[in-house]
Design a protein around this nucleic acid. Sequence first.
RNA 1: GGAGAGUUGGCCGAGCGGUUGAUGGCACCGGUCUUGAAAACCGGCAUACCUUAACGGGUAUCGGGGGUUCGAAUCCCUCACUCUCCGCCA
Length: 430
Amino acid sequence: MLDLNFVRENLPLVEEKLRQRGMNPAEVLRDFASVDAERRQAITAAETLKAQRNKVTEEIAKLKKSGQDASALVAETKNSREKIAELEKSAEDYDARLREILLGIPNLPHSSVPVGKSADDNRLERQWGAPPKFDFAPKPHWELGEELGVLDLQRAVKLTGARFAVYWDLGARMERALANFMLDLHTGEHGYTEVLPPYMVNSDSMRGTGQLPKFAADLFRVPHGEKDFWLIPTAEVPVTNLYRDEVLDGTRLPISLTAYTPCFRSEAGSYGKDVRGIIRQHQFQKVELVKFSKPEDSYNELEKLTRNAEMVLQKLGLHYRVMALSTGDMGPSSAKTYDLEVWLPGQGLFREISSCSNFEAYQARRANIRYRPDGKGKPEFVHTLNGSALAVGRTWVAIIENYQQADGSVLIPEALRPYMGAERITPKKF
RNA sequence: GGAGAGUUGGCCGAGCGGUUGAUGGCACCGGUCUUGAAAACCGGCAUACCUUAACGGGUAUCGGGGGUUCGAAUCCCUCACUCUCCGCCA
């Protein structure tokens, strides 16, 4: 959410940024200016009447205290009650409408973000490594996984349905190994604190990070009594909400947290997309990085966070590139996003494996996460950042496809061997 | 799941339905005193919104929501959370 005063005072800028995102300002902002004016008018009217009532009420108290009759004043005030309720209702209505408009405005892209319509306009920032060379035709992971006996999609359908997976033996072990490897790297070398949050959250948390109310269709809902719980679509939700409605001590910033969690996504509307393999699943695991930063440091922190995610790929020896998403491809809450795309030889393409974003104060304003600069003074909103480091399932895919051998086995990258207790995966039946 | 107790400002802790945004203490900030510090004393110390060129004025907020009343931190209902006891259980 943007700041109301900021939008009011910078309407032309907001409109320009909306156009950069490929949106129609008139549609997004609707009648912002008039609703804003009417809201203030309604508030003033209601408060004026309340001020009058409070004065009369005070008079009544004085009269009663001195033992005098106050029935005339009581009768007078009785009438104003309905009117006040009416005006208050009207003020609330305008307020709700204005808030709805405000919530519908996406974050303003940072000036360094490439302006463009789609993913085609994303800017290549850098590449690392080179694609592995094969003297045979590399296979996609779904074939390798089945042949090796480590990935079982058939039985997952029996257990649950499409877009779920069962991992066996060293396949399961590799998931666990990758999680431990990533967490050890971020906590041991990059200064992050490990967190293990709940995998279900309440609606307030989903609102705090913006999944609700707009994107309920993307989530798994768990009815619980009168209320709902929601399966988290990313650790970003519980971890960012840790500090919801809190004022942090500025001297403690930046706060860097990492969490390994499953992520549940309904993938509504993605029918027919990535149906082969485990690229797009209803449940996958991810190691997430989350930072709470002072505004003046947040872009520096975004660079660091992105490098922290890249380090995982480098240590695993996986070829990748870094893309700065264009204004047309960025998520609505983000001010700037880098995607890491890993090379998948079995499919012959780069595939998103991490997305690192600076939300500036957009999320913090909504979740009410503030800090006190130097431990004193007025609280200000923090900047929040997050990124995957990495999506474990897609890392699993990248290793299987990049390290496949002519004999049908898969070599384990050096860095992962201590966690795997093995150097190679060879075919086995399940 | 059952029974009971509680939730007040950064923290502790008062609060007969009527100048209570809220006594007091701690913490914090400024000052006096001091070579400096401590102590003591004096003063300051919530947030959001509306209004104003500004000074200022106003409204709301005592876990959330609703109700009673001219008027609610105070009474009623409801929900959430915390604590104690019982039951069940990994």
